[in-house]
Design a protein around this nucleic acid. Structure first.
Length: 287
DNA sequence: AAGAGGCCCTGATAGC
DNA sequence: TGCTATCAGGGCCTCT
């Protein structure tokens, strides 16, 4: 699920529901996420008030009123579910991002509030929760990450400078969070298609004009995806909840062997692997 | 330093 | 039906 747009959608829906609320209780059913959750985690979070829910790159951040934070990363398969309490004071289904119903398995973490609870589900357990003491520690934790595509410093000068003597392919750079943070495997292919650049091109060989296109389309694709509510793909279809619609707009991702969507192009969409990640492009109009 | 590749984990799907 | 192999939206780590 989660590249920057999907995390942003989760952030927005979560913020509406839990900001200004006090955590009553935290229950950990499985500590073995990407990083093992320490035993003291539940106690630390208990009674904290969530001042704000924010996001940086693909990270969700619970900002507590005492200046500490909880960092949440959804990994490959993490989803967040909001469960409301009914009139009888029982937790009932449902709502949320891309599951209308709470899955039966892999609900690892519960954060309970007075009137609702937040459930973290993650079959592959590549995601994590991490308590962060203060702003300084948060800054340190993000130090290795490059700018988001939306940031002002993700500009032409930055790209040209960064790509000097870089032989690695441009697709890998779009996935490299040290270079730019927030883009994942779906949007990387989409951005390069719109920029008319073949994903295997060495970064150092990109022209000024091509770098401008990468900057422009990185912003526009992510912005559009957020407006559409993110992308819900594979089995994450839902009937009643708020699911994303951007998957309908994919130009190349998961469209192997289909015709190129460009008006004048008669090319076909190809699938290759770059660093073990599927990569889609038009074999004709991307150069 | 840069770049390639392996690995963490479960589940869905394809092919035999 | 049941087996096996492959692939999945991420990112960290190690090796050369």
């Amino acid at each position: 699920m989660p590249e920057l747009p999907e995390v942003e959608i989760v952030k927005q829906s979560l913020a509406k529901k839990i900001q200004q609320k006090k955590i009553k209780k935290v229950i950990i059913k499985n500590r073995n996420l990407r990083f093992k959750i320490p035993l003291k985690f539940e106690k630390i979070l208990q009674n904290k008030i969530i001042k704000k829910v924010t996001r940086f790159s693909k990270y969700l951040i619970l900002n507590f009123s005492d200046g500490s934070f909880c960092l949440i990363h959804l990994g490959m398969s993490g989803t967040i579910h909001l469960i409301k309490k009914n009139n009888f004071n029982e937790f009932t289904n449902t709502s949320f991002y891309n599951f209308p119903n709470l899955p039966k398995k892999h609900n690892h973490i519960e954060i309970q509030f007075q009137d609702l609870k937040v459930v973290y589900n993650d079959p592959r357990r590549f995601g994590f929760f991490k308590f962060v003491k203060n702003k300084q520690e948060l800054t340190d934790r993000f130090r290795h990450l490059g700018p988001e595509p939306f940031f002002k410093n993700f500009d032409l000068k930055y790209l040209l400078q960064y790509f000097i003597n870089k032989k690695k392919d441009i697709k890998s750079f779009l996935l490299d969070q040290k270079f730019v943070s927030g883009i994942g495997n779906i949007y990387a292919s989409e951005i390069l298609f719109l920029s008319k650049i073949i994903p295997t091109r060495h970064a150092m060989k990109l022209s000024t004009d091509e770098c401008k296109k990468i900057i422009f389309f990185s912003k526009s694709v992510l912005t559009k995806a957020i407006k559409k509510g993110g992308s819900s793909i594979r089995n994450f279809r839902n009937t009643s909840g708020q699911n994303g619609n951007f998957q309908k707009e994919f130009k190349v991702y998961q469209r192997e062997n289909l015709n190129c969507p460009s008006v004048k192009c008669r090319g076909k969409i190809k699938k290759i692997y770059i660093s073990n990640r599927s990569t889609f492009f038009c074999n004709t109009c991307q150069k």
